[in-house]
Amino acid sequence: MGVINLGEPRVGTISRVAPKPIKFVLNWGRRYSLWVFNFGLACCAIEFIATSMSRHDFIRLGVIPFAPGPRQADLMVVSGTVTDKMAPAVKRLYEQMPEPKYVISFGACSNCGGPYWDSYCVTKGVDQLVPVDVYVPGCPPRPEALLHGILRLQEKIAGESLGERYGPASPVPVAQPQAESRPPSPAVLRRPLQRPPQPTSADRPEDPPEASPENPPENPPREPPQPPESSSGQRPDAAPRPGPLPPPNSVRGPADPSEPNLFLP
């Protein structure tokens, strides 16, 4: 299987050119129509189901859990332990979702590994694979916590602008390796861990040697991995998108060199 340049998602044009009231209406539509795809992996999946049931009923909030597959979903809730064997499937299903898409990491395991923090086969946090919008802490979190997480996500959607999210104009131009002009060779997939792309500015002459792909140097240095425990359930700045925006001509998909290739064979 060769490497395919998936190209930029063709969304957000309307949001870019539309006047503000229309943007508001469009955001309102996306906010209250979150078709959710439950990536149920472990214990937390049961609490996810409990949240969709009569007592908690997140369908009230417009979160419709009947999206049969990733192609129709807007929101992926990763609930449960992501193992290294499962990781490619998580990433693949995320890529099958159409933009704009959101991810809620539900429970300690998918936030940071949880009680399996020292296991040899558990991915310590789904945010190493896909960008996460809202983290819900707990092991497993109560259904109320998921409801809160959904509300937080809705607030986030209401405040965002698709035009900026997908637009070409990036305030800080992210340096792209020259390799971006042509599709990278399949050898990229078999390469071991690689350094993140160097920033152009000369203020960082050398990267710290231990800079791992989870801590791209564009990001403010993160605290050591910890289970997020704020009651808000949200760590909006911790989403490990390379920088605030995806680089303009980046290759989406498995060959993206700016994303960690930790879990490829």
């Binding site: 064997k85 499937a89 009680p115 086969c121």
Partner: peptide, 22 residues
Amino acid sequence: GYMHRGAEKLFEVRDYRQIIVL
């Protein structure tokens, strides 16, 4: 094996109270 979390190996580094968590 998609859900293998290595519980048995982890049992060996937890004391008898902590095992219950896993």
